[in-house]
Design a protein around this nucleic acid. Structure first.
Lengths: 344, 344
DNA sequence: CTGTTAGCGCATTCAG
DNA sequence: CTGAATGCGCTAACAG
């Protein structure tokens, strides 16, 4: 290690060969066993490590992947990062990350900044893919890969939010619910704000014009949802669905404080599959996304893109249903009513 | 932007000056207003950005800070990262991170790897500072700063875990608890495994030889704690304290499933102040650490270290008590019992 | 298989 | 104030 001073030149001198021979040894080398051995020994004695910047200056490849994240202190982002790490690390790549704070403009700046930083590719957990994002791709010579959102003209790899919404809609319909409040987020977030909600409403309503879905917009934090839970209640739904587990958690807390029993009096469901959904009471029924897996897929795709391996666009990732305790089957009440009607 | 090709040379030619003049313009330069203006305009037209690697090769400073983290998908790490970002970004630094997966050896490798990567300094959210960590400092010419753990021979900046433990111990004693189970983690983690527990036991026991603290070792996940909650219960304590909110959450869930009422039948407390502690029922009483603030302090200290500004070592960061619903005052039961005794 | 020769893009002497 | 020259440490032809 010794104060960073050892260069390829030094070890060339010490081993009695030329710089290029050392360089060859370091990369794929046409080298005689004898010299290779001499070099190897000198290198290990000196603790030599090739200078990162000099190397990158020549090769134009940094072995660095840029990461643009909407925020960092969130469960899903944490999982995503873990998954990305599992793939990148063994491949010899490192990640350098920038946070956009849920801000589209900042997201753009971050992409540009990373690009100038010399990364080999950029993974963007996007809040919104704007025309500028698309335009940017032309000017940039490195692959950009989006997750979180999708766009026909961009490399994307994300969960199929609409299908996830449909799954939840179908489940609640089949559980006999007929009036839902969907607590969603801004439409700027196409994936969560539009697709998830659309899929849900379609499947929930399907063939039941008398069913009803009310929409209430909230933010991503559970505190915001908590504050709006009263409004949701006033619509008098049989079930309220949070676009995110965090949202559902806030709602659950509000109901608990008012001693509104879930699921006896009202059902609650969410999307995400966060661990905390399991410790809460009642445990939250939700659609679980495997963000770690998403991360792994995204990272692998980025590597493929960098090495110009063929990739198929618009792959969407799987998810699964996590039935827990917060949704009640409405059937019994209805059949009771029917029975009574029959008796009259 | 245009395919990365624009170099300082190009803009020199276009502006009709020499490379060195452009270079001077880019840094703090002795330059005539006229040429400065010409250069400025050419630069903005071409969208020129100086090559990161070439620049670093010369200057020996990367404006990169290495981050070594125990894991990435954790609340506290997320907050810490956010805090670090708040300081680093405006200062023009970027972070490059590596994850150690709670593994000491890996942590060491990551530090070395980052060092060779040419970062200006390394922040380590350590799981354990070993002699090798200390030895490493000699060989490395850049500042290392630890958080999460401390060591007299290293730059450290962390929460005072022992004091946090004491605070909780004193609170529970004053609430009339006399038998606690402390659900802690391995001693390898000096901060959480030893200091926090030690502080707790000292303050809880202080001047009460008849009081009792049982120790049960668990991991960091709430599932592990959940599985051990039965053992904790068998000790028949008045309160169980998780070394971490996650641990306490697992315990709370176990109790809930067994219909053991908290805090009526048994109290539960934790450390961390995670948001989820507030949505759970009963809301978790805990010692809240402001990890974001820790991150900001750590980042600032790193910047000071890099610029050779004087810093004081062993600063420890504040925390505060978050009294919520999961701990009961034992006084009433005792006085009831005393009253009954008096009547007999 | 190996040494020599050129730069990569930039910052920095050193003379003007 | 400015241009010419030099080299950071490394890789990649190019001739042997």
């Amino acid at each position: 290690m010794e104060n960073n001073k050892v260069t390829i030149q030094d070890i060339a001198r010490l081993a009695g060969v030329s710089k290029s021979t050392v360089s060859r040894y370091l990369n794929r080398g046409y080298i005689s066993d004898e010299k290779a051995e001499r070099i190897r020994s000198v290198i290990s004695e000196t603790g030599f490590k090739s200078n990162f910047f000099a190397k990158r200056l020549k090769t134009k490849r940094s072995k660095l992947i840029g990461l643009v994240l909407p925020r960092i202190d969130s469960v899903s982002v944490g999982k995503l990062l873990a998954g990305i790490g599992y793939i990148l690390e063994p491949a010899g790549y490192q990640a350098i990350m920038l946070v956009s704070q849920l801000n589209e403009k900042k997201e753009l700046e971050n992409i540009i900044s990373l690009y100038h930083q010399g990364v080999d590719g950029i993974i963007i957990d996007s809040v919104a893919i704007t025309p500028q994002h698309i335009a940017l791709q032309q000017d940039i010579g490195i692959p950009l890969l989006y997750t979180g959102q999708k766009h026909p003209d961009a490399n994307c790899l994300k969960i199929d939010d609409e299908a996830a919404g449909r799954m939840m809609g179908a489940y609640l319909r089949q559980m006999g619910h007929f009036h839902a409040v969907f607590a969603g987020v801004t439409k700027t977030d196409v994936a969560v704000g539009i697709e998830r909600r659309k899929g849900f409403a379609e499947a929930f309503m399907e063939g039941r014009p008398e069913a009803k879905v009310d929409f209430i917009e909230t933010g991503f934090g559970f505190l915001e949802a908590y504050n709006l839970a009263g409004d949701m209640l006033q619509r008098n739904p049989t079930v309220v669905v949070g676009a995110t587990d965090n949202i559902s958690l806030g709602i659950l807390r509000y109901f608990h404080e008012r001693e509104i029993r879930v699921p006896e009096e009202i059902s609650v469901a969410g999307f995400g599959g966060y661990d905390v959904g399991a410790v809460v009471y009642p445990a939250l029924t939700t659609i679980a996304f495997n963000f770690e897996l998403v991360g792994m897929n995204v990272a692998q795709r980025m590597l493929d893109l960098i090495d110009h391996r063929p990739t198929e666009n618009e792959v969407e990732l799987p998810f699964f249903f996590l039935e827990r305790e917060s949704v009640r089957r409405m059937g019994s009440a209805e059949s009771t009513r029917q029975t009574l009607a029959g008796m009259a």
